[in-house]
Design a protein around this nucleic acid. Sequence first.
DNA 1: TTAATTAGTGATCGGGCGATAAACAACCGT
DNA 2: ACGGTTGTTTATCGCCCGATCACTAATTAA
Lengths: 228, 228
Amino acid sequence: MSRKASPKRARVKQKRLSPDDRRKEFVAKATEFFSEEGFGGGTRALARRLGVTQPLLYRYFPSKDDLIKEVYRTVYLEPLDTGWEKLLTDRSRPIRERLQEFYNAYTNVIFTRKWLRIYLYSGLKGLDINRWYVGVVRDKILSRIIRECRHEAGLPVQNKPTAAELEMAWVFHSGIFYYGVRKYIYESPVLEDKEQMISDALDAFLAGFERVFGTAAGVHHSPVKAVV
Amino acid sequence: MSRKASPKRARVKQKRLSPDDRRKEFVAKATEFFSEEGFGGGTRALARRLGVTQPLLYRYFPSKDDLIKEVYRTVYLEPLDTGWEKLLTDRSRPIRERLQEFYNAYTNVIFTRKWLRIYLYSGLKGLDINRWYVGVVRDKILSRIIRECRHEAGLPVQNKPTAAELEMAWVFHSGIFYYGVRKYIYESPVLEDKEQMISDALDAFLAGFERVFGTAAGVHHSPVKAVV
DNA sequence: TTAATTAGTGATCGGGCGATAAACAACCGT
DNA sequence: ACGGTTGTTTATCGCCCGATCACTAATTAA
């Protein structure tokens, strides 16, 4: 028995939504708005897009900044917390398969114009939440990938990756990340087949990891310029 | 209480520079200013940083937008046009050495907080000059790198790289690029030794290119999942 | 039906914005 | 010394911004 079935919709102007629905709608639309306009976008333009008047925003959020913080929270936290950690460390499956599947899923989530733009804007602002996210990627994703690579290569597995290992994982990860930036922000033509891009990047990363950090036991990191 | 001496000079403010010097000074300082504040930064704050009054800006630039365009021009064009093309295609030297030296030089130019921030801001604005720059990187750098790689691998050399080859080069290039973003924009700790980062990325890229596009003649692009 | 509650609006405030015009002051040729 | 030229400042305009408040009207409880 929902009372939502209002018999009369005579009022042309939308009015009187429940506070919860309004709030959620505001945050969702504000995310789209700020992702396009940047956080310098005005509250009046935002309200116009929402179909309400500007002062109404201030009934739901004490200030523009508070609204923006809510936008950050949902954008950064909503897509997270899937079973990615388990996926990465499931040694019953080949490491390459795990990585391919993880990056397929991960990029399915973050490769949207909205997410990428909010991420870059917040990065340029030097916000804490951005630093926090970079730390999450490092600790929850890249460090685990390296640990699995060490295990795969028969190297001694330790919790902390070396700086060089971590950097190599970052370069790999960033290369994939920037595919999304080129496609959705620069709107530059990219290889249509995203999974093939990931597959090729994986080939390079895995081959490079093996070559640089060596399967031959003991060799940590030496043959840099000897190759030339 | 005591303030700056020299009671004689009522006006402490600097005055009467030659138009050319002023203009150059304005553009240079405006670049720093906008790179930090974003292009939403106010002309008054900019003038304050320049030590002049705000209307003076409008004697040298018709509008704020014209000043910004000048900023773009210098930022994008100034660092370019070194002998990079020749360096990349000089087949008297090993390809790995050429690539290492090129990326050492290239990153020496673009890995500054100022350059990277202006680049990202202009990218988010979707500016033409940004698209132009992406095209330059693709045609003048990545396409040539691929041609050299094909030559090195004994593959038939053609002017146009395949979409998959180009994508692989982009992922490699972007991985290096994002090292600068992490260091100078996110201010995240990175591997101190930039040249080692480049070296490791090169190892991965060259090994990956060979593995994916094959030295075995004729094999264009097949062995993706067979490796696992 | 009526009174209390509350979602939503209209009007407005102080302030900062980009930009303009007029007044001022340093420089230069004469 | 002087007067025109020009680099620089003071004062100000119109506009848009974030935020506030008094008011209207839809909902709810009695």
